[in-house]
Amino acid sequence: MHASLRRVYWWLIAPAVLLMLVFYIYPLIQVLWISVTDPVPGLGNYSELIDRALIHRIWMTTIRVCVITTVITVVCGYIVAYTMAQVGERQRTWMMFCVLLTFWLSVLIRAFAWVMLLRTQGLINTGLQELGLIDQPLRLVRNEFGVIVGMVHFMLPLAVLPIYSNMTGIQDRLVSAARGLGASPWVAFKDVYLPLSKPGLIAATILVFVFSLGFFITPALLGGGKVVMISEYIQVSFEETLRWGQATMLASTLLFSVFLSLALVARFVDLKKVFGAR
């Protein structure tokens, strides 16, 4: 590339870089700084990760909810994306519209809507009772079930989009070729289509898992204080117990665990390829 042209490009991204530095990198450094200086300098805050049973429990809840959410979301997302890749142009447009529709609704409204549906006097419980299928209302909310339902709902487009985008690059005739060479529909899918859609699956898994780790509103509302995940506990530490050292430590740990999970995945797959940089 021409040197002067490259300089123009640097100037073009300069405002964005500046914005990131001032409003993102600088506060982040401050968070890291507070986590090792408040209330006293040292790694005292981080020792809580090992010492305090409450923080253990919160971390375990977070990881469990995130893993279950990720698995369900990616499986459902794969099915939706696969269907979108197979149907005709008209149906595909409608499906894409429905997938994106959830994006346009506020996350708060969606969480409240799930509460309305899932609560004891909600539509689902009263409906099932009137049909005579259950005697007592089911506990569908203020527990991990409710949190996972809400999170899967929020995350689904994040899984569908990368998987679908990957699938559009898979040639139909490869599956036909497999069938023609003697593979049953299932074997053709398992041995040809599935491996070729792996980059999309991995991208979706990373995206959903990383998003889930720091998720706040949905677990807070649908968990109703019963399912406390890291981000909710950070908020409590910041605003209610005013333990900023602990809050920033947990925030930093959350950030590190995102990096850690990316590093783990990178051992097995080429992340640049997965996210389309190569």
Binding site: Q171, R173, A177, P195
Partner: peptide
């Protein structure tokens, strides 16, 4: 039947 497709259709993986 053996089939040779237009554009070969080899499995890239």
């Amino acid at each position: 039947f053996g089939m040779v497709f237009q554009g070969y259709a080899l499995f890239p993986h």
